[in-house]
Design a protein around this nucleic acid. Structure first.
Length: 202
DNA sequence: TTCCCGATTTACT
DNA sequence: GTAAATCGGGAAA
């Protein structure tokens, strides 16, 4: 498609916020069960700093069936069901045992748009297609089947993309329970990109 | 085993 | 702006 694949070395680096920032502009591709390829450019991410981060499922070195995947090596996929309704896609970073992760919050659709529209039961292309963590997994056909998989050209993979003009760092969404850690500027998105999620503010 | 609640989305009034 | 949908994880008992 574009440049080369992003190697595992990219994800094994120690600073999860750097990786979350550098994932902006990269291509994310998924091969669907029927063989179709869908994908787009990552435009919004959030960093979760493993066992030290109150917003992270692995906070306090919590080890359960669900969080076991988070302790895998960088490049592993962590998918979980949120609110009993939506699958959320993360990419594990850092060395095994650290439980750092980057949440993919929004992408700009580029490949297989008709397939993504069908997955979302939509007729016309618009920001609602992929502008949110639960929306993009539905569009890409991501579910628990992908949990624990490593990035690979057979299933889910990343390729070198574009260099974003301007990146914004802001607080993460929906993590008020994380107390002081909810204030960290660990949400990153490409400025003025219409595919970035539009969280509601009460 | 019980109970509370969530890294959200969508359809209402 | 408010509320429903929907279910399994995790902590407490």
């Amino acid at each position: 498609m574009q440049g080369g694949y992003l190697s595992q070395d990219f994800f094994i680096r120690p600073d999860v916020t750097t990786i979350a920032r550098e994932l902006l502009g990269q291509f994310l591709f998924v091969r669907c069960s029927n063989g179709n390829i869908v994908g787009g450019i990552i435009v919004e991410t959030e960093a979760y700093n493993g066992i030290y981060d109150k917003a992270c499922h692995a906070y306090g070195n919590r080890k359960t069936q669900r969080t076991a995947v988070m302790y895998q090596k960088g490049g592993c996929l962590y998918v979980y069901l949120c609110y009993g309704l939506h699958y959320l896609l993360n990419i594990i970073t850092n060395e095994a045992g650290k439980a750092d992760a980057v949440l993919i919050r929004a992408i700009e659709p580029r490949v297989g748009i008709s397939t993504m529209l069908a997955n979302r039961k939509m007729k016309t292309l618009g920001p609602e297609l992929t502008s949110g963590p639960g929306k993009l997994t539905q569009a890409l056909g991501i579910n628990l089947r992908h949990n624990g998989l490593y990035l690979s050209p057979n299933q889910v993979w990343l390729e070198q993309g574009i260099c974003p003009k301007e990146i914004v760092a802001d607080t993460r969404i929906g993590v008020s329970y994380a107390q002081e850690h909810a204030l960290l500027p660990w949400r990153f998105y490409i400025a003025n990109n219409p595919w970035v999620s539009k969280p509601k503010f009460y």
